[in-house]
Every structure is written in structure tokens, then in C-alpha cells.
Amino acid sequence: MFEARLLKSSILKKVLEAIKDLLTQATFDCDDNGIQLQAMDNSHVALVSLLLRADGFDKYRCDRNVTMGMNLGSMTKILKCAGDKDTVTMKAQDNADTVTFVFESPNQEKVSDYEMKLMNLDLEHLGIPETEYSCTIRMPSAEFARMCRDLSQFGESIVISCTKEGVKFSTSGDIGSANIKLAQTASIDKEDEAVIIEMDEPVTLTFACQYLNYFTKATSLSPQVQLSMSADVPLVVEYRIPDIGHIRYYLAPKIEE
């Protein structure tokens, strides 16, 4: 028996919003520790890694490991039926071929349940190697989303260059070029609003705007985003979801021809 209850359905709605541009279907792996999802997009350019810890749920029970292959389009349709203030409970029997979503309004006057067929997805499980990163940049997630959106108007790629002076986001295209430089916040009063740069070695890498914009769909999950970069390895864009887990996106850099 698997049962996971969240007081706020909005977290699950936002998680789905944050992955549905990259993935059409995905496997939710549930065990004692919580729910994990890990999948590459069709073109093998980006990987999504989601963790929702058991202790972040209002109620969590998982007697046996459960693997649920879900069509994310169908899941989105179902979650649209939940009010933002509704609680959501996901339920599945052991070895079941369906999952049930139960939505309850705050006053319990409206209770709805939606049963969805599971898919048998034969997806490979991937191991993410432990990596020491040369640069990590933390900044307000809204600021990162704004930069990606602004720079996307000019070109298809963004060059991220991190040096001890700060971090620079650049792009160029038919109409011209654009650069945004961010320096580390001088005095940190509010951690959520700070830009914090840790650099062991300078790194410059080029990434596709389109993917960075997909990642920023996670903005509402977290006030801050962390970018981790090293030469010749995928960029990690991490949003920590308060009290429950994280969503991490890995993105292969563009390479010089």
C-alpha cells in the first residue's frame, strides 16, 4: 500500500508545471524515503531529478517499493481539478495498475477522486556521479528567470562566465548582443535576495536558452536557485523546495564545432 498526503496540492501542481515541458511521461519511484523521479528529455540534452522526501508529506506510507509510470499530460489534467487550497492524497495498492488522486477542500465539504491508469515504462535508471563543481552561484530564482527571458530575445544560446569578479550572462544574435553582469551581494540581509558566488576556478560554458527557460518553470517552487558549473560537465540548476525536497535539472553544454 502506498499513500502520500500533502496539505497543499499547489506543491504538486507546481512540480508538474516544472517538468511537463521536458518530459511527456515519467516514472515515480516511491519507497520509505519518499518519491523520486529521474528522467532525461527525449533528445538526451537535459535530465530532471526530483526528490520529495517522506518527512515533507502530511502523511506518508509506503509498505513496499512502488514504481508508477505516469503520463504527465494526464496527470496535469487531473491536478487541474484540484483547488490550490485542497489537500491531495496519492494512493496505490501494491502492484496496482492505477493510481488514485483524492482532493479534499479545506472544510471537507468537497471530496473528489480521480483514478489514473499507470503506464509500463521501461526506462533505464541512471546514476548521477558525485561531482566537485568549480563554481556555484546562488541567486533569487525570479532574477534568474528574468535574465533567461530577457536574453532569449537576442539569441539561442547563453554564455555563462563565472570569474572572481562575478558572473556574466551573455548572448548575441541577429539584432545585436546583450550582457548581464551580477556581482556577489555585498551584505546579506535577506538570504533569499542574495547573490552568492563560490569559485575555485573560472568557468565559461554555453547553454541553450530554450532549456534554461524550461527550467525556470520551477521558479515558484523556491525563492532561490543554485547553478553549479565545471568545465565539460553538465550544468546543474537546483531549486530547493522548502521542507520537502528539491528539483534538479542537468543540462549538457553546447560545444564548439
Binding site: 532525461m40 533528445s43 538526451h44 540534452v45 537535459a46 535530465l47 533505464e124 535508471h125 541512471l126 546514476g127 548521477i128 556521479p129 544560446s157 554555453t206 541553450a208 560537465v233 553538465p234 542537468y250 549538457a252 553544454p253 553546447k254 560545444i255 564548439e256 564545432e257
Partner: peptide
């Protein structure tokens, strides 16, 4: 010019 890299090779299939 640049070309889009792939993730294959970075992650190990378990």
C-alpha cells in the same frame, strides 16, 4: 559555431 552536446556518457545506466 556551437552544437548542442548530449548527456549520454555522463550518467551511468544502473
Amino acid at each position: 559555431g556551437t552544437t548542442q552536446g548530449r548527456l549520454d556518457g555522463f550518467f551511468k545506466v544502473l
